[in-house]
Write a protein that binds this DNA or RNA. Structure first.
Length: 395
DNA sequence: TCTGGGGTCCTAGGACCC
DNA sequence: TCTGGGGTCCTAGGACCC
């Protein structure tokens, strides 16, 4: 007899803020806001539920958060600390399911199918999981239980914070109704606006549409997604097939700038950060992409696929520099610059040339430095601008 | 309101090939 | 003459998520 499918979705509540409250008990019960410093450019990364009472939420500009909650405790992001706690939580999850898929630093999807004999019924298991995480990692989490990953994800959100909710088989459609169309995962503001414009922004009306009709209205993928999502069916989220991915870093300048020295030096630093991450995961890529944002917030990107894998931060930087030189209109100051690799593959079988190119030799040196730093327990790249690089360049 | 940084996936058009 | 069909790769932009 095969067991009915059961999935858990776990989500750490206001994670960054919860960690800060655990590390500083004086912050408990206080409006904690983690993100950019007030007075600087940036947004709220996470905030405690006490802060949400003031109307503060994540992704809100920090200036607006400060206006709404001047008495808040404003803290910088301590990503390595959060990663540490996340690791403890993921370790606990691994003892509850052989199939744990981390979605982000504070979320994971677990296949719990067939674990009933070992742990008991799902609800009981979820309660045990919640108390073990609180006890051993010190942070609260919400759990959603459902017959598929998509519903489990939304169920984890349904009773937050410190929530637990179970969607039983047969309740798929009624749960989607309880969640409501605007809060359906994967359906954002733009799509809602579009649906509204064609009078299809209610569940009953949408459910009258055939899959083909939705596809022709919304496009192949979006139509298929919508047709299944509004029925609470799995939409194939969090697939485990390893694909190529991307690695990128970007930075917003403290002030908009048209200063070529600032822009090129930033690009150089970012290039080193990106290349070191590629080294760290032993990946390879031929596609360099850059992103730039003008002072009016209009944002553009472009990319260049080389005939060979990029071998060094120098080569990455040079390729990105050529792209930005060709695209940027220097009469308009830039707000942001970013660079990255697209279509990163696993690096096994990296070619070794008999006669290494200059870039390849540079890459070997960079890699050696990276490995030394890794051994010394410091895997962060030396700031390129501190390596005595000439940064200044003529356009 | 004055808007971070890191991602994923999809689309549409063009180049090129058979 | 006036025009195939399918496939792959590349690119830029957009929607969405955490």
């Amino acid at each position: 007899m095969s067991s009915a499918p059961v999935f858990f979705h776990v989500d750490l509540d206001a994670f960054f803020a919860s960690v800060e409250q655990m590390d500083n008990p004086g912050y408990k019960g206080q409006p904690v806001i983690v993100g950019a410093a007030p007075g600087h450019r940036g947004v709220v990364s996470a905030c405690s539920y006490e802060a949400r009472k003031f109307g503060v939420h994540s992704a809100m500009p920090i200036s607006e958060a400060f206006r709404r909650c001047p008495q808040g405790i404003y803290l910088p992001v301590r990503m390595s600390r959060y990663a540490e706690i996340s690791g403890v939580v993921m370790g606990i999850l691994g003892r509850f399911s052989p199939d744990v898929r981390p979605i982000s630093i504070d979320e994971a999807s677990l296949d719990m199918t067939g674990t009933g004999l070992l742990f008991g019924p799902p609800w009981q298991t979820a309660e045990n999981l919640k108390s073990e995480v609180l006890e051993r990692a010190g942070v609260p989490l919400s759990v959603g239980i459902a017959p598929n990953r998509f519903l489990a994800k939304m169920a984890s959100d349904f009773k937050k914070p410190n929530g637990l909710y179970e969607v039983l088989p047969g309740q798929e459609e009624s749960f989607v109704e309880a969640v409501g169309l605007p809060k359906l995962w994967g359906l954002g503001k733009k799509t809602m606006e579009r649906l509204h414009a064609i009078c299809l922004d209610t569940l009953p009306r949408l459910r009258q549409m055939s899959e083909d009709a939705l596809k022709s209205l919304m496009g192949e993928a979006a139509g298929k997604f919508l047709y299944n999502a509004i029925r609470g069916r799995d939409i194939g989220m969090y697939s485990d097939t390893a694909k190529s991915h991307s690695i990128s870093h970007e930075t917003t300048f403290p002030e908009d700038t048209a200063d070529w020295e600032i822009i090129s030096l930033s690009l150089l630093d970012l290039s080193h950060q990106v290349m070191y991450r590629l080294f760290a995961e032993d990946g390879k890529s031929r596609t360099v992409s850059i992103k730039y944002r003008y002072s009016d917030f209009s944002t553009f990107s472009c990319q260049n696929t080389l005939s060979h894998f990029v071998l060094s931060a120098e080569e990455l930087y040079k390729t990105g520099l050529d792209l930005i030189k060709a695209k940027w209109n220097p009469r308009i100051p830039l707000r942001l610059i970013g660079i990255g690799f697209d279509k990163v593959q696993s690096g096994e079988g990296s070619q070794k040339e008999l006669f290494p190119t200059a870039y390849e030799r540079k890459g070997l040196v960079e890699k050696a430095v990276f490995n030394m730093q890794k051994k010394a327990g410091d895997a962060t790249p030396v700031k390129a601008s501190l390596l005595g690089h000439p940064g200044k360049r003529k356009m």
